[in-house]
Amino acid sequence: MTAIRSPLADDARTVTGEALQGMVVDLIDLSLFAKQLHWNVTGRTFRSIHRQLDQAVDVARRHTDLAAERAVAIGVNPDGQVGTVAHRGQIHGVESGYVQDEKVVRLMTDVLADVITRTRGRMDATAEPDPVTQDLIIDALKELEMQHWMFQAMI
């Protein structure tokens, strides 16, 4: 039995919970990926990319927390454990060692595009069953798409 009673019908809670869980996994994965690049970027444009990666991490972490807390508010337990993220995450890691600045920009641009595509699918899936969650997803998309633009502009 859950300690939190959902304001949503069971089917709406299921769809919304799946969307939020997917976001939690994607955003934790994104924050880890960006932080790995942040620590290992090298090249002429190191400083600006290093700082932009920190901004991307901040966006991912902030929206992870919002998605997880929304899940709990509707009676769904989010799972952000390392095993869950490793098993369900769709972002492939980067090689060990230093990564050239131009490669970092391309990697982040591609990964953000993939995360945005999945997040847009979640936005569509929650439109009918839970517009409140959809609004949260839209807010995350605004910032993810801004990060995507910022990295694309460096190519």
Rank of each mutant, 00 (worst) to 15 (best):
A113W: 03
T133F: 08
I137F: 04
W149Q: 08
A73P: 00
H63A: 08
H92W: 14
I74N: 02
A125E: 10
V72Q: 08
M150T: 12
G75W: 00
T42E: 14
K103C: 06
L136F: 00
V57I: 09
G93Y: 00
E145V: 02
R118G: 10
T84W: 06
Y98C: 06
T45W: 11
L136C: 03
V76H: 02
R106Y: 13
V41G: 01
R47V: 08
A60L: 12
K103F: 04
L32D: 09
G17W: 00
F151C: 02
V72A: 13
R61N: 10
E18H: 13
A67P: 00
A125C: 07
V104Q: 02
Q152T: 11
A60Y: 09
R13S: 02
Q55P: 03
A3Y: 01
R13F: 01
R106P: 04
D101Q: 12
S31W: 04
I28E: 02
H50W: 05
R51L: 15
R120G: 04
H87W: 09
G89T: 10
I138K: 11
S31C: 13
V72N: 06
M146S: 12
R61V: 09
A125Q: 05
R70S: 04
H87S: 11
Q81F: 12
W149L: 13
I138P: 03
A140T: 12
V25G: 05
M108Y: 02
D11S: 13
D54P: 06
V15R: 14
P7L: 08
V99R: 11
Q90C: 04
S31L: 07
A56C: 13
E102L: 10
K35W: 03
W149N: 08
L141Y: 14
N77P: 06
K142A: 14
